[in-house]
């Protein structure tokens, strides 16, 4: 042994050993490639910036203000205008009583009251063919928390869509993960098929699959639930499978050696190891599904999204503000709750 060491030292003294440089020519090439990719793809936003700038230049042609300053002020003003319209958020709701079916004045909802309001209505007089303005008195049911209640009810529906979407995705992805794990898939073709399915369903965005599902199931939450379930199953199937593949081999070998079947080896040696990670992934997917369920309504697949889109289309920013606050509070509360739940389980 010593002879060998001396021999190798004689052949190549440490002063001659080749030390690896901090940067190789390869890293420089990679860095250049990344810069080129950034430069080429930056076209996507630089084009719009130059359009904004040239428009601002035209607008300030006869003024002394520089174009960049004008463009910046314009952008800020748009935000300020929107912000002003958003606050205060809409909490109450007023509905003419003729728009309420089976209205019972003796049985008003809690905190609500009836008020009389005069409206100006413009109508075309069929005799004179002229527009005439008439004053109409209407009884209005004013509910001080009416709009908030409506948004909360929609948010609850959104949460239900997210929850069921997550439950279904877990049920789909658990068996998929078994076949997607190279070390447990019973046959090579089953492994490839399962991996293909997982990649395919992950590649289709929820909103796209929701569009198709709405055609099949009609407007409503079923399309939303299924769209979320399918897409999330793609993620969970991949995450679960990779954890199975990376689990410590020692306990698996020990349980296999006791004569346990491959499934029981997985159940007793891998599942306890990957359980905390599975909880973390599932909670993350639930959190993500809540956020995604809020936009499912954009394609009429249920939830708060339809209300949000409707108010946005009508530029009713105070209503939009209420919806956004409710979404934020819900997501934040869920995040805290899931962290607490995860810590308890792990």
């Amino acid at each position: 042994m010593k002879n060998n060491q001396f021999k190798s030292e004689a052949k190549s003294p440490t002063s001659d050993w080749r030390l690896k440089p901090a940067f190789s020519y390869r890293s420089v090439i990679y860095a250049l490639l990344i810069l080129i990719i950034f430069y080429v793809t930056s076209n996507i936003w630089t084009k719009q910036v130059s359009e904004i700038y040239s428009k601002a230049k035209e607008e300030v042609a006869e003024k002394e203000t520089p174009a960049w300053k004008h463009a910046t002020i314009k952008i800020f003003n748009s935000f300020i205008k929107m912000g002003k319209e958003m606050f205060p958020p809409q909490i109450s709701e007023s509905t003419p009583i003729e728009a309420i079916s089976e209205f019972d004045p003796q049985n008003l909802p809690i905190f609500s009251k009836l008020i009389d309001k005069t409206y100006k209505e413009h109508e075309l007089n069929p005799d004179t063919f002229k527009m005439e303005t008439t004053e109409v008195k209407k009884q209005i049911l004013k509910r001080p928390f009416g709009y908030l209640e409506k948004v909360l009810a929609k948010m609850l529906e959104t949460l239900e869509i997210a929850l069921w979407g997550t439950v279904l995705s877990v049920l789909i992805s658990l068996p998929l993960a078994y076949f997607c794990a190279a070390n447990y898939a019973p046959k090579r073709f089953l492994y490839l098929a399962a991996r293909g399915i997982v990649s395919l369903i992950r590649a289709i965005p929820e909103l796209i699959s929701a569009l198709f599902l709405v055609v099949a199931f009609g407007f409503g939450p079923i399309a939303g639930i299924l769209a979320l379930a399918i897409h999330s199953a793609g993620f969970l199937g991949k995450f679960y499978a990779e954890d199975i593949e990376n689990a410590d081999k020692g306990p698996q070998e020990a349980i296999e050696a006791t004569g346990a079947s491959p499934f029981m080896t997985l159940y007793y040696s891998v599942v306890p190891q990957v359980f905390p990670q599975y909880i973390a992934y599932t909670v993350y997917i639930l959190d993500r599904n809540v956020r995604m369920a809020t936009v499912m309504g954009f394609v009429n697949a249920g939830g708060i999204g339809a209300e949000l889109k409707g108010r946005l289309d009508q530029f009713q920013y105070s209503h939009v503000c209420t919806i956004l606050i409710v979404i934020f509070v819900t997501v934040f509360a869920l995040d805290r709750l899931s962290a607490h739940f995860r810590n308890r389980l792990i």
Partner: peptide
């Protein structure tokens, strides 16, 4: 495997 049992160097127990 019904007749043979194994004891491992790193114990190979299931930690959780």
């Amino acid at each position: 495997r019904q007749q043979v049992a194994m004891i491992h160097q790193q114990f190979n127990l299931v930690g959780r």
